[in-house]
Design a binder for these strands. Sequence first.
DNA 1: TTACAAATGAGAAGCATTAGCAATAAGGAA
DNA 2: TTCCTTATTGCTAATGCTTCTCATTTGTAA
Lengths: 147, 147
Amino acid sequence: MENGTGSLEDDRKALSVTGIRATNQRAIVLEVISRGQGHLDADEIYRRARMNQPHISLSTVYRTLQAFKKLGLIDELHFDEAHHYYEIKPAFEHQHLICLGCGKIVEFECPLSQKMKKDVARENDFEVTSVEVRMTGYCPQCRQDRT
Amino acid sequence: MENGTGSLEDDRKALSVTGIRATNQRAIVLEVISRGQGHLDADEIYRRARMNQPHISLSTVYRTLQAFKKLGLIDELHFDEAHHYYEIKPAFEHQHLICLGCGKIVEFECPLSQKMKKDVARENDFEVTSVEVRMTGYCPQCRQDRT
DNA sequence: TTACAAATGAGAAGCATTAGCAATAAGGAA
DNA sequence: TTCCTTATTGCTAATGCTTCTCATTTGTAA
Ligand SMILES: [Mn+2]
Ligand SMILES: [Mn+2]
Ligand SMILES: [Zn+2]
Ligand SMILES: [Zn+2]
C-alpha cells in the first residue's frame, strides 16, 4: 500500500532506537539524506521529501534536521555562508574540497588532521571536539574554461 | 580639526593606493578592523565606526566590507553559520580554534596545512586556492565549569 | 482503546545581508 | 580653485534562510 520500498521501514527502526518518535516525515527525511549523495541543503531535502509525502512542511524539515543533528545521525556543513548542507554521519572521517567554478564537492581523507588536532590540543590546553578542513579551488574542467 | 589621530590618514593612503576612492567611511571601517583584535562582525564594526562618524550607515559598512574583501585587504571568516567575521589580512597564515563554551577564539599556525594542500591538489588534480582549518572545543576554564 | 505528550502544518516573525534610488562627495580636468 | 563626472552614500524596502507560534494531529505506552 504505502509504496513499500522496505528501506523506509529500516529508517523507522533506526529512529525508534534513538528514543524519538518514528514519524513518516522523519523517516522520509532520513531516507532522502541517505540516498542523496550527501551535501543536500534544507530546500533540496524538502523538494525530494515532497515526492513521497506532498504535505510535509518546510518547518518540519528544518526541525527534523535539528533533531537529527542533535542525535548525531547527520553532520551539518557550511560550504558557503548562505546555506547549510547535510550528510549522513560518515563511517570514515573526511574533509571537503569545493570547486569555486562549478560547485562540485570532492571528499578526501585527511590523516594529518588527527595529528594537527593533538598538537593544537596540547599547545593550547584545549579539549578539541572537532576538526574541519575546507579547501577551495578549481577542478580540471573549470581550470580549463577559465584561462 | 578632524580628530587627528594620524592613523586615519594612514588608512586613507592605504586606500588611495588600491585605486578606490578614499572616503571617511572607508577609512574608519579599515581603522576599526585594524584596531579591533580581528574577528568582528558587521554589526560590531558598525557600532564602533559610529563613535567616530555617527551618521555612517549599516549598508555602507556592508558594502565596504565587500570591497575590502575583493581588494584582499581583509579576510572573511565563518565561525558560526549566522554571522561573518572579518580580520585584516594577516601577515602570517593562521587558523582558528573556537571555544564552544565562551566563544573565545585562539589563533594558531599550522605548517602541516601546506603539506595537506599540496597532497590534496595533486591527488585530485585541483588548483587549490585556500585551506581553512577550523577546530572547536573547550578552553581550560569552560572545561572546568562543565563537569 | 484511551490519554497525553510530542510532533506537525501553515503562516508569521526574525535576522543578517542585499538592492534600489535620489542625494552627496571624491578626484581629475580646466 | 572651481566645475564635472561618476563613484559612493544613506535611507528604506526587499530578500532568503531559518526559527517561532499555535491550533490540530499523531505516536506511544498503559
Ligand atoms: Mn561529505
Ligand atoms: Mn584570526
Ligand atoms: Zn569545477
Ligand atoms: Zn571557553
